[in-house]
Simulated assay, not measured.
Amino acid sequence: MGLLDKKNIVIMGVRNKWSIAWGIAQIAHDEGANLIFTYQGDRERKSAEELAAELGNTEIFQCDISSDEQIDALFEEIKTKYGTIHGLVHAIAHANTEDLQNDFVYTTRSGFAHALDVSAYSLVAVSRRAKDLMTEGGSIITLTYMGSEKVMGGYNVMGVAKAALEASVRYLAADLGPSGIRVNAISAGPIKTLSAKGVKDFNSILEIVEKKAPMRRGIDREDLGHTAAFLLSNHSRGITGEVVHVDSGFNIMGI
């Protein structure tokens, strides 16, 4: 029996085979979960369908995370088809390219609002709907990065958004804890995804981690998938409001 046997797990943000969400989905599937994918819009639909088909017995739903109406419709449909969910993975973030390429001081007002809305507030929005379906308790996890704690070149407004996301994790954990719902974040080390291509000098960041991290290596999607499966499972029932670093120990190092 797997860690997530017969548990209904919603994964929001499975974009392609290089995404962290896909690594989590693969491990969750191997651990026996019934998976439910969401995709943002028509551009992501084909990829989501192909990935769902690869795992088999995985339904997909469209949801524009910036629309409260679509979020409401999504969870109403999930409630009708599944009744109860046991876990939710929030793997959604976005910032405008120019706000990542330019110095942070030139971040636009609209770009700042966009990054915070999509990358941080969306967790609050989906948690509010998910809690009503977690009638047996549950686990919500999101993805962050050390750029929330330290200045990382090229991360810019996304670092500010991730800091807001991590604070949201703590406040949500306090609100939802009495209902038996845990909320945690995984702070992933740098990993090659399509989103990472938007970060200036990303390859040099990878090289530094591999050289300086205590384990002298980077991380992969399997590392993150196993950590997510643990946090989604009953084995982590005493853990909430935490930011768990999965980065080969890089976060503990000074110079």
Score class of each variant (00 low, 15 high):
residue 101 Q to D: 06
residue 90 H to G: 01
residue 121 Y to K: 14
residue 53 A to P: 02
residue 130 A to F: 06
residue 229 A to Q: 03
residue 179 S to G: 05
residue 139 S to G: 02
residue 85 I to Q: 04
residue 16 N to I: 07
residue 210 E to N: 10
residue 40 Q to H: 14
residue 71 I to Y: 09
residue 102 N to P: 00
residue 52 A to F: 12
residue 133 L to Y: 06
residue 126 V to F: 03
residue 121 Y to Q: 10
residue 212 K to S: 04
residue 253 M to C: 14
residue 207 E to W: 00
residue 108 T to Y: 06
residue 91 A to Q: 04
residue 27 I to W: 04
residue 159 G to C: 09
residue 221 R to C: 11
residue 158 M to N: 06
residue 200 K to Y: 12
residue 12 M to Y: 03
residue 79 K to R: 15
residue 24 I to W: 11
residue 184 N to H: 04
residue 55 L to A: 12
residue 165 L to N: 12
residue 168 S to D: 05
residue 32 G to E: 04
residue 5 D to C: 11
residue 222 E to W: 03
residue 179 S to C: 07
residue 19 S to I: 08
residue 89 V to M: 02
residue 132 D to Q: 08
residue 21 A to Y: 11
residue 56 G to F: 10
residue 169 V to E: 11
residue 209 V to D: 07
residue 76 E to G: 12
residue 162 K to A: 03
residue 201 D to R: 13
residue 91 A to V: 05
residue 5 D to P: 01
residue 157 V to K: 07
residue 73 A to S: 15
residue 69 E to I: 03
residue 254 G to Q: 07
residue 99 D to N: 12
residue 221 R to H: 13
residue 81 K to F: 05
residue 170 R to L: 10
residue 88 L to H: 07
residue 220 D to H: 06
residue 19 S to F: 10
residue 144 T to C: 11
residue 221 R to Y: 03
residue 37 F to T: 05
